[in-house]
């Protein structure tokens, strides 16, 4: 099942995948345990001549065991998830590059800072459905929406965040491998939701310089 997971190219994606695999192994073991027991009981205790069912109302020790064991495992999983969650959502490292992405029916408007490195200045570079970022740099995305809720989803980065009208939400990632990555909208946003698709271009330092130069006059 897990082999379908897209290749991870972000710094924190590995932590998400680690938890994903951990839960996968735990739940797979639980599923096999329960299924084997159930099938075994169904075969062993099928109705047969001359045998009466056991008259039992339960077993307190057993019931305590199967309450406590899952509880311990689940709470352990929660605590293991908390630090990763905090790292991704709460304690973003300072930005080394910043873009603004605005979702609208049915496109992503992307604003890149021009040569001055600042947004909301005259040299901003606006491109539809293309996010250009440098590799190995902490990228902050100011995520906005102008009409309905959209969702910024880059499967290869393990990033997903809803864009909510009236809000400015911070998304960050650091990509370790140059390339092109698909950026679909993951929240139903109307009849054109399917096919609302952008691309994130992750550039090597040289390519990124080239991108900035080529678009210098565009602002």
């Amino acid at each position: 099942m897990m082999s379908w997971l897209p290749e991870n190219v972000s710094t924190y994606g590995g932590q998400i995948d680690y938890l994903f695999y951990l839960i996968y192994y735990i739940t797979a073991a639980a599923l096999i345990l329960v299924t084997v027991l159930m099938v075994a009981f169904l075969i062993m205790y099928r109705q047969r001549e001359g045998r009466k069912a056991v008259y039992s109302h339960g077993n307190t020790a057993l019931e305590v065991t199967w309450t406590v064991v899952p509880a311990v495992i689940l709470i352990m999983l929660s605590f293991m998830s908390i630090s990763t969650w905090g790292e991704i959502k709460i304690y973003a490292p300072p930005a080394e590059y910043e873009v603004r992405v605005v979702g609208k029916q049915f496109n992503w408007d992307v604003f890149h800072p021009g040569p001055d490195g600042k947004l909301d200045t005259e040299d901003d570079i606006k491109i539809e459905n293309e996010v250009h970022v440098p590799v190995d740099k902490v990228v902050h995305v100011q995520l906005q929406a102008s009409d309905v809720i959209h969702s910024f989803f880059v499967p290869s980065f393990r990033v997903k965040q809803d864009a909510v009208p009236g809000r400015d939400i911070l998304v960050w990632f650091e990509v370790t491998k140059p390339g092109q990555y698909e950026l679909p909208c993951a929240e139903l946003c109307g009849f054109g939701h399917s096919g609302m698709l952008g691309w994130v271009f992750v550039h090597t330092p040289e390519d990124f310089e080239k991108f900035l130069k080529e678009n210098q006059d565009q602002g």
């Binding site: 329960v34 027991l37 169904l42 205790y45 069912a53 339960g58």
Partner: peptide, 9 residues
């Protein structure tokens, strides 16, 4: 599962 255990199904 405990209900199935030891039953006469």
């Amino acid at each position: 599962l405990g209900t199935l255990w030891g039953g006469s199904i």
